[in-house]
Design a protein around this nucleic acid. Structure first.
Lengths: 187, 187
DNA sequence: GTCTATAACGGGATAGAC
DNA sequence: GTCTATCCCGTTATAGAC
C-alpha cells in the first residue's frame, strides 16, 4: 500500500473513532507509520487529508450497500436488509458522526462529502420504495420520500441514542419502530 | 445574574454552537464576561462546567416539554405537538449533538447527562403512547416502546440530515414520515 | 470572589536536508 | 518522497495579588 493510501486509511479510522477536531496530524502519522513530510507532500493539510478520508469511507459504504442489495427482492425486504446490516452502533456512522463537528460543518468541502453520502442513501431508499410501489407492493398513496427520510433519520438518530447509552438496544428499538412503519405501507 | 450562572449560560450556548471539544475556556470567559479566576473558583475545570451547562440545558428542555404538553389531548396530538416544536434544525439538539464528541462519550459524567435526557424523552413518548393505547386511541397490539424510540431517533437523525444539508427540509421530511407511521398505529 | 500573569503542553504547519 | 528539527499559537490550568 502506498504511503498516501496508508495516510487516507489511518485518517478514515481515526475520524470514525475520534471525529475530526479530536484527531491530530500526530495521531495520523503514528498510526500510518508515515512521517510529517509525507503528509504535507501528499496533502495540503489536515482538512485536505480528512476530505480524502471521508470520501474514501463514503465510497466504501456506498459500494457495500450496492453490493449487498438484491434488486430482485421485494422493496421492503431490500430496506429491511439495509437496516439489518448496521454494524458498530456504539461507534456511530462513519460519516453522519462527523456532521456534529463544528469544524466539519464550517468547511464546505468536508460538509459536502457528508451531505452527498447521506443524500445518496436517502435517494437509494426512495428509489427502492418507489420501485415497490410501482410493483404494487406498497399502497399507491405511500409518501416514499418521507418514509425514506424517516428511515435514514432513524439510522442516524439510532447511532446517537446508542452512543449516549453505550448500548445497541435503543438503536435496535428505533429500527423495529421504523420496520413496523414500513410494514404499514404495504398493500 | 450571578457570575456562576453567567458562566453556565455562556457555556450552554457555546456547547450548542460549537460542541464540547471546540469550546475553550477562553471563549466562555469572553462571552460570560467573567475572569479566569472566577471560573476556576466555581468549577473544577472545563468538564465540570460543561456538566453543569449540559444539565442546565437538559432541565430547560424537559421543563419546556412538560409545560407545552396538554395531557387532556389525544396521544397522537401530544406527540405531534412535540414533533412540531422542534426549532433551529441547523443548530442541532442541544444535548444529542454532544454525544458524537469523543471527549463527551469518554467522560461518564457528561455522557450520563445526555443519556438521562434522551432516555427521559423516550420514556415520555412511550408513556404518552401507552396512555393513548389504554384510552383506545391506538391499536392494542401497537409496540409503543419501538414507536417511541423511532420518534426520538427521527428527531436526532433529522438534526444530522439538516446539518449535513444546511437546510431544514430533510428533517421535516423525516418528521412527516414519522407522523405517517404514528397515524398507522391509530385504531 | 475576582483579577492578571504565567506555566506546561499539544496542535498545525513550515524549513530544509537527504 | 521522506525525514527531522523547529516555529508559532491556542488550550487548560495554576499562582498569587487584590
Amino acid at each position: 500500500m502506498s504511503t498516501r493510501d496508508a495516510l487516507v486509511e489511518a485518517t478514515a479510522d481515526l475520524l470514525w473513532e475520534r471525529g475530526y477536531s479530536a484527531t491530530s496530524p500526530a495521531m495520523i502519522l503514528a498510526r500510518s507509520g508515515a512521517g510529517q513530510g509525507s503528509m504535507y507532500h501528499h496533502f495540503r493539510g489536515k482538512a485536505d487529508l480528512a476530505r480524502a478520508a471521508m470520501q474514501h469511507a463514503a465510497d466504501e459504504m456506498t459500494t457495500g450497500l450496492e453490493t449487498a442489495d438484491d434488486p430482485s427482492l421485494p422493496a421492503l425486504e431490500r430496506v429491511r436488509a439495509f437496516l439489518g446490516s448496521l454494524r458498530d452502533p456504539l461507534r456511530g456512522c462513519r460519516i453522519g458522526r462527523l456532521v456534529q463537528d463544528a469544524e466539519v460543518v464550517d468547511d464546505d468541502d468536508l460538509r459536502g462529502v457528508a451531505d452527498q453520502y447521506l443524500h445518496g442513501l436517502e435517494q437509494w431508499v426512495t428509489d427502492v420504495l418507489d420501485a415497490g410501489r410501482a410493483a404494487g407492493e406498497l399502497r399507491p398513496d405511500a409518501d416514499t420520500a418521507a418514509a425514506a427520510a424517516m428511515v435514514v433519520a432513524v439510522v442516524q438518530g439510532g447511532f446517537v441514542l446508542a452512543r449516549a447509552r453505550q448500548d445497541a438496544a435503543p438503536q435496535q428499538a428505533a429500527v423495529r419502530g421504523a420496520l413496523a412503519a414500513l410494514d404499514a405501507l404495504a398493500v
